[in-house]
């Protein structure tokens, strides 16, 4: 059933080499670069899983921060009672359940409702948690475990590798095929017997679960979590921009956006900390007007042009 073509083997070997390089990174680079690498690994995880859903369906999800915060809080509340790995899995489960509920409520309808709903989701969850904390007299949660920076990095790289694998498998599965049809024309998809709502809900559970898991993994890095740290709305927008900047047409597309944007973000927030919102805004405009298919689209266009020149 899983027949591999020669291009698949080629892609597989390139991915394995890149993965090995990524794994060896902490021994090569210094501390500052490693911190940046942890951020990049986190955004690779978030943006790639985001694109798995939003790429084919064109539904812009802004719920990343909400799932991320959910995961961070799962870790924060459970770290003294349960082992770390179990909590990460639990966070993923909670994320999937929450995504399923949101999906069932909004994905039956037009995409706009979904965008609006996810836009305020992190803010609403934050309000509710703040309210509960005020009611119980609690302030923030101290997380008592701690890892080396390189451990965080390896955990995130492992998660990223897992997502690439899942994404690759979905692309070959019936679900992936169904989603591409939905993305092209939902009406056609419905008429050819695809349960469009169910497919979308199932797929939306992936970024939900993944974002919650990365929130749980990263939480010990913060050491102390409170609603404002765990539910930063900016996170959702950063993920959208990185994924779209790279391009959602290929599995590796978001990665091509994560690397340059993380560096740019680091530079801007170091020298002009108040202008990060402006940077976000301009990035959105650049994507829409200049790079509608992201770097991936640009690359494919250039390649097609070169191909034409050769006269194939």
């Amino acid at each position: 059933m899983m027949r591999m073509k020669s291009t698949d083997y080629k892609a597989l070997s390139v991915s394995i080499v890149l993965l090995l390089i990524a794994i060896c990174l902490p021994w090569i680079v210094g501390d500052f670069a490693l911190t940046l690498a942890v951020n990049m690994a986190m955004f690779t995880v978030l943006a790639t899983s985001w694109a798995l859903f939003s790429g084919p369906t064109h539904y812009i999800s802004l719920a990343t921060a909400a799932f991320f915060g959910l995961g961070a809080y799962t870790m924060g509340l459970g770290v003294d009672h349960l082992p770390f790995w179990l909590l990460v899995i639990l966070a993923g489960l909670f994320g999937a359940i929450m995504a399923g509920i949101i999906g069932l409520a909004t994905l039956r309808l037009s995409g706009v409702y979904f965008v609006i709903f996810t836009l305020g989701l992190a803010e609403m969850t934050r309000q509710i948690i703040t309210y509960i904390q005020n009611a119980t007299g609690q302030k923030g949660i101290l997380i008592s475990i701690w890892f080396e920076e390189s451990t965080f990095y390896w955990m995130l790289v492992a998660l990223a590798a897992l997502i690439f694998l899942v994404g690759w498998l979905i692309g070959r599965s019936r679900l992936g095929f169904a989603l591409r049809i939905i993305g092209d024309d939902e009406e056609v998809a419905r008429h050819s017997g695809i349960n469009t709502a169910l497919s979308k809900v199932l797929l939306f559970m992936i970024p939900g679960s993944v974002a919650a898991m990365s929130g749980a993994i990263i939480a010990p890095r913060y050491g102390y979590i409170e609603p404002l740290i765990a539910f930063t709305p900016m996170l959702s927008f950063q993920v959208v921009i990185m994924a779209l900047l790279g391009g959602t047409g290929r599995l590796w597309g978001p990665l091509a956006g994560v690397i340059p944007f993380s560096i740019l973000w680091e530079l801007i927030s170091a020298s002009f900390p108040n202008q990060t919102t402006l940077l976000l805004g301009l990035s959105f405009l650049i994507i829409v007007y200049l790079l509608p298919q992201g770097f991936v689209g640009l690359l494919l266009k250039i390649r097609a042009k070169i191909g034409d020149g050769r006269g194939y």
């Binding site: 927008f237 108040n274 202008q275 919102t277 402006l278 940077l279 976000l280 805004g281 301009l282 990035s283 959105f284 405009l285 829409v288």
Partner: peptide, 8 residues
């Protein structure tokens, strides 16, 4: 994009 630019 416009909203972020405006906020900025």
């Amino acid at each position: 994009g416009l909203s972020f630019v405006a906020v900025g």
